Each structure stands twice: as structure tokens, then as C-alpha cells.
Computed example of a mutant assay.
Amino acid sequence: MTSTLGRHTARPITPHSILVWQLQQTLRTAEENNIPQEVLTSLRQTLQLAAGLDPYLDDCTTPESSALTALAQRTSAEDWSKRFSDGETVRQLEQEMLSGHLEGQTLKMFVHMTKAKRILEVGMFTGYSALAMAEALPSEGRLIACEVDSYVAQFAQACFQDSPHGEKISVEVAPALETLHKLAAAKQSFDLIFIDADKKEYVEYFQIILEANLLTVDGLICVDNTLLQGQVYLPADQRTANGEAIAQFNRVVAADPRVEQVLLPIRDGVTLIRRLV
């Protein structure tokens, strides 16, 4: 079974789910305003085509493990309307921050394909993506997850205890930039790095990873939310601060001769980055 979060979210948060929601609203308005039947038929067919995609992707993707299902369910049941402090600032947490079934299985596949043994996750939330990747690591493999929020870190670690793969994961509770500098000073390197933290710091994460050699030769960087609800390709005046930060990050990566990359339209956008030099 796929997780409930793989099928239903509290609100649309990806370009595709927002498109489906807008089509639903448009069709409802059209039905209430005597729109010609041929237009209604076209709208219904368009909505059917769009709305069926995500469920079909879930159905055709290997089901998640029971431990991932349990983690997703616990995340869904938690009251994220509370505000948690990272020590200096207060941020709003929400269940939609969880990576979910399709992205989790995608990351798990990348771990298998790259034969990664050491993984760094920059931004963990409740640990769905960390555990998904840990499931693909060999028994001696290790994953270090950066999480700024101690409450979330404890939540995730409790979930990890329910999985035999949880022991492969260690959590660093601190601002992500602080942890990256700490790992760089210790001359650590990783085969795969997954970035899903403060969007306004994405460019800095990227620069530190390359300049401090945190990524091994032929290693892979996976970056989440690089479509950010479609804001990156909509007019600039329709972007939030995070939307502008991601648009800038995408421009920086595309112009960097040290890497090659591809942006995949998975969930809210996942960019794969390979170092060339």
C-alpha cells in the first residue's frame, strides 16, 4: 500500500496538483454559468487527464515499506499547526514537507543506481526520505541527516527505531550551513547528497558542497523543490521569496561549468547534478 500522503495532501503544493485544483475550480465555475456543452466536455476531459496522473504514478511505483507507511501516517496525524523554534527563528512546519511515496522511491532507486555507501541529507523533516534512502544502503552504509529543529529530529529518530535500517542514520541537529562547515572541516565526503532545507540557502549549500569537496568524484547531488509550485517559470511578480530563491538557484546551477544537471518534474521538482571537474 502507498501512504495516504502519497495520494492525498491537505492542499495542492506541486505544479501538477495546483493545476488539477485550478481545473476543478474552473470546471465548477463553467458548470454554473451556462458554458457551451462542448467547452464543458473539453474541460472535463482535461481534468480527467490531469487528475489521473498522480494516482497512476503511485500505482505503477513499487510500494513503500511498512516502516515508511507508518512514518507517513504518524506525520499526517501530528498537529503541525504548532510553531517550533530552531533556536533563533520560528518556522511553520506542515505535513506537506514530507517527501512521500513517489519521491522516496525515486531517491531509493538513485541510491541503488549509484551504489552509494555514504549519503548526506541537508534537511530531514520527519525522516521519510532519509529512511527511504537508508533502505537502499548496504549494511555498512551510513546516512548523515541535517535537521535544524530538535522536535522534528526526535520525532524522526523515534520512527527510525521501528525499522532495521534506522541504525544506518545519524542526525545532526543544527543549522544546515553550520553542519556543512563542520563536515567540510572534518574532510568528510559523500557519494550522494540530497538537499531539501532552507530554500534561501540553496546556492550556499551548492557552493560549499563543491568547494569543500563534500561530494565524491562521480557523486550525485539531488535537490528538491526546484520547480517550487511552478513559481520558477511564472512571471517574477508572482514569486514568493522562496520562489525567487529557487529561480536564482536554478540559474546558478545552469551557468556553472563545473556541473551538468537535469531537472525532473517529480512532485515539486527534483534536480540531479553531476560534478564534471
Rank of each mutant, 00 (worst) to 15 (best):
R7S: 02
T9R: 14
L27M: 06
E38Y: 05
V39Q: 11
R44E: 11
Q48L: 13
D54R: 15
Y56T: 15
L57G: 05
T61H: 02
P63H: 09
L68D: 00
Q73W: 00
E78C: 10
D79A: 12
S81C: 09
K82E: 14
F84A: 06
V90H: 08
Q92S: 13
E96L: 10
M97K: 08
E103H: 09
T106P: 03
V111T: 10
K117Q: 14
R118M: 07
E121P: 03
M124A: 04
T126A: 10
A130T: 06
A130V: 04
L131A: 02
A134G: 10
L137E: 07
S139Q: 15
S139H: 07
G141I: 05
G141R: 11
Y151C: 05
V152Q: 03
Q154A: 14
F160G: 00
P164G: 12
G166I: 03
E167P: 01
A176I: 00
K182W: 08
A185E: 15
A186I: 09
K187L: 13
F190S: 01
I195P: 00
K200P: 02
I208W: 00
L215T: 06
T216R: 11
G219D: 04
G230A: 14
Y233S: 15
Q238M: 15
N242H: 13
G243A: 09
I246E: 04
Q248S: 05
Q248E: 10
P257Q: 03
V259F: 06
V259Y: 03
E260L: 10
Q261V: 02
I266N: 06
D268W: 06
V270W: 00
L272Y: 00
L272D: 02
R274Y: 06
R275S: 13
